[in-house]
Design a protein around this nucleic acid. Sequence first.
DNA 1: GACAGGCTATAACCTCTACTTATACCGATA
DNA 2: TATCGGTATAAGTAGAGGTTATAGCCTGTC
Lengths: 305, 305
Amino acid sequence: MNLSQFELLCEVARVKSFSKAAKLHHLSQPAVSSQIQSIEDFYGTRLFERSTSGVTLTSTGQLVYQFAKEILKQHDELEKSIDHLLNETNQKLVIGASSAIGNYAIPCSIWTFKEKYPNTQVKLEIRNTENILSLLEENTIHLAMLEDPLPEQYYKHKFVEKTVLHDELVIIAPPKPPWINMRFITLEELKKAPLIIREEGSGVRCMFENVISSHSLSLSDFNIETEMGSLEAIKSTVEAGLGLSICSNLAIRKEVRSGSIHPLKIKDIELKVDYLLVYKDEKQLNATARRFVRFIAGPGSDPFC
Amino acid sequence: MNLSQFELLCEVARVKSFSKAAKLHHLSQPAVSSQIQSIEDFYGTRLFERSTSGVTLTSTGQLVYQFAKEILKQHDELEKSIDHLLNETNQKLVIGASSAIGNYAIPCSIWTFKEKYPNTQVKLEIRNTENILSLLEENTIHLAMLEDPLPEQYYKHKFVEKTVLHDELVIIAPPKPPWINMRFITLEELKKAPLIIREEGSGVRCMFENVISSHSLSLSDFNIETEMGSLEAIKSTVEAGLGLSICSNLAIRKEVRSGSIHPLKIKDIELKVDYLLVYKDEKQLNATARRFVRFIAGPGSDPFC
DNA sequence: GACAGGCTATAACCTCTACTTATACCGATA
DNA sequence: TATCGGTATAAGTAGAGGTTATAGCCTGTC
């Protein structure tokens, strides 16, 4: 038996459904089914009555549920106590991140992390990819979150990389004709449209250059209106209707919901981005950094929602 | 984190050594090293100071140790509480076993099992392999422990088989010349020696027949002194110096220690036996039977020592 | 000081667990 | 009866956790 099984069991007991619990834990429904089954095998007895409208605890199930909650609570206390034992150096964590993830994904997960480990002090540095990597190199930051892949010249450093998030780049446009009626834009159309891009050294710019170069194009084939050093500035410019740009889905969730920016996919081109957690060496990490790695990249965690 | 990791941590803390804890848990030393490491990664901090003379808890380690003990205690209580909730049918378990394992291995493990689940009623039927399988077929027993492989005609029943124990058959001889000076016996020597064998239907007899038939021999090529229906009877006969016999290592541990029986290996022949836990269908097992399956065949268990 | 023997760490390999997706199945409701 | 919301099962895959073999490190002994 492991603690995450207890967590799952509690979740299932709470929402009375395997599939709902599956969603909440970012698992597939069969995974939950089989986890619960293996818990039942472990105790040798059925813990949930299944029906087509969900599941309910049996009397033994209720017993296990009570104890599970209790055990999890105790383990939480343990983690908090460890927190208090750690010295100051161990409680400081500096994370570097590139624009999209640093502004739009990390803050929420830092929030959740600090809820769990209230004694830690987390500092966040937002720079472009190259800058972040130098900071990592000179040990100014402990961890970095960047777009996959890293620029070639950094491979020699043998950083540890862990994929933590899948995302997609999209073209962002003002929410008016002709864009508002389209869901896709062709590369030809994009070449003619006024384009705003990030400064050199930006991860997103680099990705975009890679993609177009695989279609034998370079930035000079496009109608580059401006280069800008800030994502917020770009978004404002696009919102004002002055051009199109390209950025991560993550960064525009709010604007898309409110309707102030219209996202477009490029026809027949996939612009998947994976975000990486990057660090120099597991062994050099302090306690809080290790915890953060587990928190972000550990199995079953998905703190970016 | 899972409970067995807590158990391991407690054991290590208690004996102050990875290798000793490894032995106690029937693991290899590297397995313990890596388990402890992954616990340390989980909490993000070192829990043991390593030295060449063993390991000691760090202050964080002591904290975790205290909580681990507490959590394990609580889980024990949970198991006991479940025990009390089970109805009578669920608390009864009838195990059938063939001679060697039934007499010499199972009793000890039943003892340990009942210590953990005091409310259960375990009954043990000792018969030869064929009899046990009929009992299993007609649902008189819940579980069977038998030699691998089962007689061919039983394959059609699609019993569930789990290997639980590796053992070896040996030739047993009286502790006197010429045997006492030998560690190996050739097949030729064995063919000439007075041999006592089990009755038809015995698993050991069947195994022996299989082995010699792969050397193009049958029982009629041997000098069969007697057939006997009981292992104890055979052992007494061998002790009395009236012949050799063949039986499982398990069954003669006591006699070998006390020197009243001398074991011999057959030269160039491996007589490994695997013992199986056999049952009809996971789903038909009651709670106690399932627990016993986990207890005997679950990962990390080795209740036969 | 060199060496043997206790201990832990690391590497290479293998097996089995726990995911995934796709699909079957089952009962309630329209 | 068909559909929808739920769980179970199957087949395939990646990773955790085990194994053995071996290295490296300290201590006690000669």
